[in-house]
Design a protein around this nucleic acid. Structure first.
Length: 326
DNA sequence: CACTTGACCTGTCCGC
DNA sequence: TGCGGACAGGTCAAGT
């Protein structure tokens, strides 16, 4: 669910909010959420200052000046939420841009696409984008909080994860290129150097699999998940269950073109999610308003008017217009 | 070897 | 109203 555009949105939010913050304490309630030893935490996290926030596929990389990095995978329901220090008021006389920024920061700001809330999907939709009460986060920590990092400033970075699939882990920054799970990840789809020639070569490695399975394979192309696989296959008029060997090069070139523009638009809109979503500014992302097939089963295809159906491909819920997608 | 399925988890929703 | 079960989907290990 947090896929490339959502993780990118989180990254941009964190970049603005936590770079320069120094970690002074760490607590976690679920060992798998943060498997490093206590001595690692003490040695490489305590007192370390965050210097950069990067992304590779769906993985967040929070670089520290200890030469270690905090690697974060949100998996299905992970969230990174930064809450500034409310009691701290700096530069009370002059309301500089920085101060205003800090004041805004002191409100709960989520960088997460997957905000779990107590509000149902129905009531979520009733709020317009940009509604002042769009923040869907209550008091933190809450019961989904797995890891809390407290900063010298008093701010807190919460890693929330309802389903406990996600994790964060300390690794030496210099070793990251050699870390197995990062090393295996395929090309970033939005890189200019990743053109149709490269995409076709990558996808053809999975010639006997369905095109959807190939797209979801992180070693083929980085960062694509269920939403953007379904959406780009609809845009390119390809049935998700089609074997890769039965998809022409021309169709694959179209698929990449559509994928790129869908990912770009989604980042522009702050990402999407089938559930509650707010971006780093505490507002909802709006890509869900642009979705053509995902979670639209029973509704009409905007292109041909046929009914969108939900089926199962590559073990995933799959949304398709049978008339458009052959 | 290539590919598919099951496990990891919890909250929500649906039917009885 | 309560309860059981299906479902949601990213990734890895295990199975075919």
């Amino acid at each position: 669910m947090p896929e490339l555009p959502e993780v990118e949105t989180v990254r941009r939010g964190l970049l603005e909010l936590v770079v320069g913050e120094t970690v002074v304490s760490e607590t976690h309630d679920w060992p798998k959420s943060f498997p490093n030893s206590k001595s690692d935490v003490k040695q490489f996290l305590m007192g370390a200052t965050i210097s950069d926030v990067r992304r590779r596929a769906k993985v967040l990389i929070i670089d520290l000046d200890s030469d270690y990095s905090l690697i974060v995978h949100l998996k299905m329901t992970g969230q990174m939420v930064f809450v500034g220090n409310k009691s701290q008021s700096r530069e009370p006389k002059v309301v500089s841009r920085e101060t205003r920024h800090r004041i805004r920061s002191s409100r709960v700001r989520s960088c997460d696409p997957q905000l779990k809330s107590h509000v149902s999907g129905e009531s979520k939709i009733r709020f317009g984008a940009g509604h002042p009460n769009d923040s869907l986060i209550g008091e933190l920590p809450d019961r989904s909080t797995r890891v809390t990092l407290t900063m010298k400033s008093g701010g807190k970075l919460f890693f929330n994860d309802q389903r406990k699939f996600g994790w964060m882990r300390l690794l030496p920054t210099a070793q990251l290129p050699e870390v197995d799970f990062l090393k295996k990840i395929g090309p970033e789809p939005l890189e200019d150097s990743f053109g149709s020639k490269e995409f076709i070569a990558q996808v053809r490695r999975r010639n006997r699999a369905s095109i959807k399975a190939a797209m979801l394979d992180q070693t083929v192309v980085a960062g694509v998940g269920n939403i953007y696989a379904d959406e780009s296959l609809w845009a390119a008029k390809i049935h998700p269950a089609t074997k890769v060997s039965d998809v022409s090069d021309v169709k694959l070139a179209t698929l990449l073109k559509e994928l790129k523009s869908i990912l770009k638009l989604s980042i522009e809109k702050g990402g999407s999610s089938d559930k509650n979503y707010v971006n780093a500014e505490g507002k909802k992302g709006s890509y869900i308003d642009f979705v053509q097939v995902f979670r639209r089963e029973g509704q009409d295809c905007s292109r041909c008017g046929a009914e969108i159906i939900k089926t199962r491909v590559a073990g995933r819920g799959t949304h398709v217009c049978l008339k458009c997608q052959k």
